[in-house]
């Protein structure tokens, strides 16, 4: 399809900025919680559009390393689930290696969903 400019990320970004600068200060107290949720949802969507799939190859390589396989993340993740369920990571050392990769996977998702909390060390 034809990608018109400004693109989705740009539209969400400017919508969020306008909402924060011109609408949020006028929102009465009873609606403030909802207004903040709207800003939060837009900010998450903007980060997701900005991140795209850029982190995926490295994460797929890490998951593939645990399994001794190659493939993309959406193929390897269910295989990793199955391997975990079969007990392949029950022993101390494989389990510690598994946790390291899972930390990376989870931090990448949290960079989209809640970067502030991630930066705060939680």
């Amino acid at each position: 399809m034809i990608n018109d400019e400004p693109d989705a990320r740009d539209l969400v970004a400017i919508a969020l900025r306008s909402f924060r600068e011109t609408i949020l200060p006028l929102v009465p107290a009873e609606q403030r919680f909802t207004a903040l949720m709207i800003a939060n949802a837009l900010a998450t969507a903007e980060r997701e559009l900005a991140a795209g799939a850029s982190a995926e190859p490295a994460l797929a390589a890490a998951v593939g390393g645990l399994l001794g396989e190659t493939g993309d993340l959406s193929t390897l993740a269910p295989r990793l689930c199955a391997a975990i369920g079969e007990g392949r990571f029950d022993d101390d050392e494989p389990q510690a290696a598994l946790r390291r990769v899972l930390f990376d996977l989870t931090r990448a998702r949290m960079a989209v969903s809640n970067p502030k909390l991630l930066a705060a060390g939680r």
Partner: peptide, 21 residues
């Protein structure tokens, strides 16, 4: 919207789980 955003809390819950383990 509140339910939708709660769904997106999953990564932070999982990070707490990993830290605990």
């Amino acid at each position: 919207l509140e339910l939708a955003l709660t769904g997106r809390m999953l990564p932070e819950i999982e990070l707490d789980l990993l830290r605990h383990l």
